[in-house]
Every structure is written in C-alpha cells, then in structure tokens.
Amino acid sequence: MAADALRLDGVHAYYGDSHVLHGVGLVCGEGRLLGLLGRNGAGKSTCMSTVVGLLQPKRGAVTLFGKTIGGLAPERISAHGVALVPQGRRIFRSLTVRENLVVAAQKVRAGSLRPWTMARVFETFPRLGERRAQYAGSLSGGEQQMLAIGRALMGNPRLLLMDEPSEGLAPQIVAEVGRTIVNLKNEGLSIVLVEQNIKLALEIADDIAILNSGSVAYQGAAATLTMDHPAITQNLGVH
C-alpha cells in the first residue's frame, strides 16, 4: 500500500507561549486532494507553516510519504518535495516574473514524468509568459496567484499545499484557479487545499478535514458532505 502523502499525528504548535494547534491529526492520501476548512483563526495557516518547517511542532509527528520531516528546516523540507502557495501569495515583489520562477527551481526528482520547467509554467499560465520581464509586484491579484502557484510548481513537488488561493480574487479567476487545481490533481499530485470558499472546496476535494480552535473536528470524504451537514454548520457557521 502506498504511504500517505502527508500525515499529521497529534501535532501541537505554539507561537511563543500561545498554544495554537492542539494535537492536530489529519491525512492526505497520495494523489488525493484534501480540503482543509475552518473559521478564521482556526489554525489552518499554522498547520501549513508546521508542515513546511516555518514553525516547529512542540509535540507530534509530521510524516511525508512515510518519512518523518518534523524538525527539519524549511529548505530541507522543500527538497523533500513539499511546496507551498502561501496565504496572501507572498510572491517576491521586486523580482521579475521570470526570476520568481528561476529562484524556486529545484532538481527534478527521479521518476518524475513531466517535470515542471519555466516553459511548462508559461504554457499553463500564458499570462505569466507575456509578463515574464515584468516585476511581480506590478501584476494583478489573479496573476500574482498564478505566479505563486507557478513558483510552487517549479520545485517539482510531490505534495502541494495551497493556503486560500481564491482569497480576494474575482469569481471568474477563482474558477480558473479551481480548474488549475483539478488539473494538477489529475496529474497525480497530492494536494492540501485550505479554503474559506467552502463551495469550491466541496466541489473539487476528495476528502475534507475541518479545523476548529486548533484541532480537527471532522475528517471524511467530500462526497458525503453538503453545505447543510452538521459538521459544516457547527464548525464553519457564523456564531
């Protein structure tokens, strides 16, 4: 049996003294798309930071394709095949589009069928190709999001983490981002998609995990969930 792409087991994480993740456990199967939902402040981005190594878990294990990565530095974890599309995009604003992709390029993993190159990113996002010499800070929000995704793909990841990629984008751009995510999944990439846009997540995810106040309140198949399911209304509804 193939190992899970990502497993968090009893992960506790702190910002200084503030205890944010209280024993988070979740699983993203290989080649699957896990939607990670939760209210603002539930700890979704903190989970992402813990996986990529920006935050060290105090307790618990983070396992990537069967290998423990807890405690490694971010650049090491990146070399293990994890890429992040951060919340708020955080592209390198004073670098050109091309440079944003160049600095993120990583050695291609053995056995990778269609490795990501700059040419392939431009093929996938033609707008980025047209703007390759432009400073990333001058791009529109949607283009910046494409660039953040392209930058993550340049690392040729096995696991792609996306933190609210639809945030602040116009509906037609959100749809485009959604299609891109589905295409990536269809290529076999394992993806964790953090979303506030519940509808989008339910539509494209295979599995759903819901975080509430720093622990997982629900994990199950996306197909069994609807907007009026108690797991959704209780954990995501406005109080």
């Binding site: 990529v52 190594g53 920006l54 530095a73 971010p74 650049e75 974890i77 990146s78 070399a79 890429a83 992040l84 951060p86 955080r90 390198f92 604003r93 004073s94 670098l95 440079e99 944003n100 160049v102 600095v103 993120a104 990583q106 930058r151 993550a152 340049m154 690392g155």
Partner: peptide
Amino acid sequence: TRIGAMIRAGVDDAPIARVVGIKV
C-alpha cells in the same frame, strides 16, 4: 545572476524564500 535574484528574494521575504528551497 540567479544567486543575485536569490539574495533579492531573501530581502523581499526570507521565510518564503526558505520555503521555496533557497538556502538563505
């Protein structure tokens, strides 16, 4: 140069530079 671009990326956002694999 690519090294130069990496330095500028680190100036822009060091944590994310590390996350994309740059040895800051």
